[in-house]
Computed example of a mutant assay.
Amino acid sequence: MFKYIVLGILSLLTLCYLVLNSDSYKLTDNVEVSTSYHRNILADNRRENLIKSEPEIDQLRKSQYTDSYQFKDCLQLQEVIEIFLVVNPETSITSIELENTMDMNIFEISSVNDNTEFSTKIDGKTGEIIENESERLDRDEENGVERKNKSLDLKEILSYQEVIAIAEEAIGGEGKNFKLSLERELNITFWEIEFSHNSLSYEVKIDAKKGDLLEINN
Rank of each mutant, 00 (worst) to 15 (best):
K3T: 11
L7F: 11
I9N: 02
L12F: 13
T14M: 08
L18G: 02
N21G: 12
S22L: 09
D23H: 09
D23M: 09
L27Q: 13
V33A: 04
Y37K: 13
L42D: 09
A43E: 13
R46E: 15
N49I: 10
S53P: 00
S53Y: 03
E54T: 14
I57Q: 03
Q59A: 15
R61S: 02
K62N: 13
T66L: 10
S68D: 14
Q70S: 07
K72E: 12
L75W: 09
Q78M: 12
V80W: 06
E82W: 01
L85M: 10
L85T: 06
V87K: 08
N88L: 10
E90T: 08
I93R: 00
T94Y: 05
I96T: 01
E97P: 00
L98K: 03
E99A: 11
D103C: 05
M104P: 00
F107E: 15
S110R: 09
D114G: 02
I122W: 06
G124A: 06
K125M: 11
E128K: 14
I130V: 06
E131R: 09
E135R: 09
R136K: 12
D138F: 09
D140W: 12
E141W: 12
N143G: 03
E146T: 07
K148E: 11
S151K: 15
Q161H: 15
E162S: 15
V163K: 07
I164R: 14
A165P: 01
E168K: 03
A170Y: 04
I171Y: 02
E174K: 11
G175R: 00
K176T: 04
K176H: 05
N177I: 03
N177M: 06
F178E: 01
K179V: 02
L182K: 05
E183F: 01
E183N: 15
R184L: 03
E185K: 15
F190L: 06
F190W: 03
F190R: 02
E192G: 05
F195S: 05
Y202T: 08
G211R: 12
G211I: 08
L214S: 01
L214T: 01
E215K: 14
N217E: 12
